[in-house]
Each structure stands twice: as structure tokens, then as C-alpha cells.
Amino acid sequence: MSVAASPARKLQMSVIGPILALVILVIAGALMNPNFLGLDNITNVLARSAFIGIIAVGMTFVITSGGLDLSVGSMAAFVAGLMILVMNTLLPKMGVGVPIVLVGMAVALGAGIIAGLINGLLITRLGIEAFIVTLGSMGIYRSLVTWLADGGTLSLDFGLRSFYQPVYYGGIFGITWPIIVFALVVILGEVLMRKTAFGRHCAAIGSNDQVARYASVRVARVRLLTYVMLGGLVGIAVIMYVPRLGSASSATGLLWELEAIAAVIIGGTALKGGFGRVWGTVVGVLILVLIGNLLNLTDYVSPYLNGAIQGAIIILAVVLQRGSKAGQ
């Protein structure tokens, strides 16, 4: 017989942790720089969170069901490159206008879904470890985008870029599109995780895939869907990203996979799977982006140390999770 820790209480601790960190960060930021809480800066921070954030929501499902995807950063670069290439190629025929942008968006979404499908099929059908499959595809996509750009940069036609730009910079009621899309993805993700059979199955598979299998859960299909969904979300992130710079190169999306995974972990999702929290991931993304933003706005610490501080936060988050588990 062992003492049963009350789950309600345990939950509270792990719920408060990331939120507390975010609040402290915001207060610290406001004290250090009055511009920090300004509308411009907030909009900027949220818009920049959107790319990683949209991907990290998908990553939450993959990790919750016991998987991992290291390829999302280079997948984003490849999809962006492909999208630009297709749009440039079609430009003489279709001209600048809504149709060509829609075609570009469809290409990005489709390519992302297909890339996720390939990852997922290799993992579920051939039974190869997710780490290995996505390590491989990470290299493949990075190399493909470098090849497509011939070692340089793929740039969207200038006229087309000006036409497409409002998708990143524009919005309604002063809220830009990336923030709106990010918010929608988060809300849908949260509902999917907590309120649907799919979300429950993800957690069950990550908790113990044998138990799920013996309970007649369609384990392979659920797993495959998490990768397809992540691929689709990479496509959506690219749709928001391309109008920002209008280009893609071998440096596009560099280390996005690690930032996305870090955000998921900081948010309280278990790296081994079995438990996932979409809103936690959002908090994780905001923490990571805010740190970078703070370092840029203040001169206490060199912005070059951004990575070091982010790294320390990731380790700290996991240590805190351990700590609350050791109390069991």
C-alpha cells in the first residue's frame, strides 16, 4: 500500500509553474523597459511566436502520443522554398492576384501534409524509431531546400511579394493575421486534446501503447494522424511566414524543431508522452520568445546569450517537473 498523492493538488503545482514563470517574465520586462508592454511590442512578440507556436501545437500531439519530430524546421524551409518556386513559375501564366496566392497556399499545405504523412508512414508501417526517421528527413529537407535555392536564396517575385505581404502585416481590428491564425490553432488544438476521443487516444498511446493496443485503440492510425497534423500545421506556419520576408534559404527555419520541442516541454507536456497540454505549449512558446525580446530591449545581458538563457530555462522546467514527480 502506498500513499496516493491527490492528483488535483499535483496538477495545481504543474499548472502554476509555467504560468508563474511567464508572469514573472512579463513583470520583469515591464520594469526594465517601459516599451515592453506597448501595443507595438506585444503585437511583434505574438506575431513572431506564431510560426513556432503553430508548429508547437502540432508537436504537442506528437509528443503526447509518445513520438517526436525533429524534421519540422527543415520541413518548413523546404515547403517555403517549394511554395515560392511554384508561385514564381506560375506567375507569367496567372499574374499577380488572389488565385496565385491561393495556389501557393494549397501547395504549402499539401506539401506539409505529404511530408508529415511520409514521416508517419515510415514510423508506423515500418516500425522505425521516430527519432531516427525524423533525423533522416530533417537532413533530407534541409538539403533539398539548399539544392532548390542552388546554395543561395529563393525569393518571391517582388510584385507578388507586395501583394501577399498583408497576410503577415495586415489583420482586422488591429490584430494581425498570424496572431489570429495562431489563436485559432490553439483553441482547436486545446479542444481536440481535451475534449475528443482523438486527444484521449493520444494520451493513452503515449502512456502505454501496449495497453492502448489491447484496448482495441487504432494505435497506428492515431500516431500517423499526429504526424500528418503536424505536417499540415507546418504548412500553415509557412503560409504565414513567406509573406514576411518573401524568401527561403538553407537558413530558413533553422532550429525551429528544437524551439518547438522546448516549448512543449516547458509547457508541462511529458517528453515520454502520456500527458499533453496545448495551452501549456503556448505558455512555453511565449516564454521562449519573450526572453529573446527582453534581451533585445534591454542591455543588461548580451542578446548573443539568448540561446544560453533559453537552454537554462528548458533544463529548469524539466527539473521542476521531476521535483513534483519525486513527491509521489
Binding site: P7, A203, A204, S207, N208, Q210, V211, Y214, G274, F275
Partner: peptide, 10 residues
């Protein structure tokens, strides 16, 4: 224990 129930869940 290892195939029947999710021991970490309620």
C-alpha cells in the same frame, strides 16, 4: 499492469 491498464491515469 503492462498491457491492461494505464497505471498513470485515473
Amino acid at each position: 499492469k503492462s498491457r491492461g491498464l494505464l497505471l498513470q491515469k485515473g
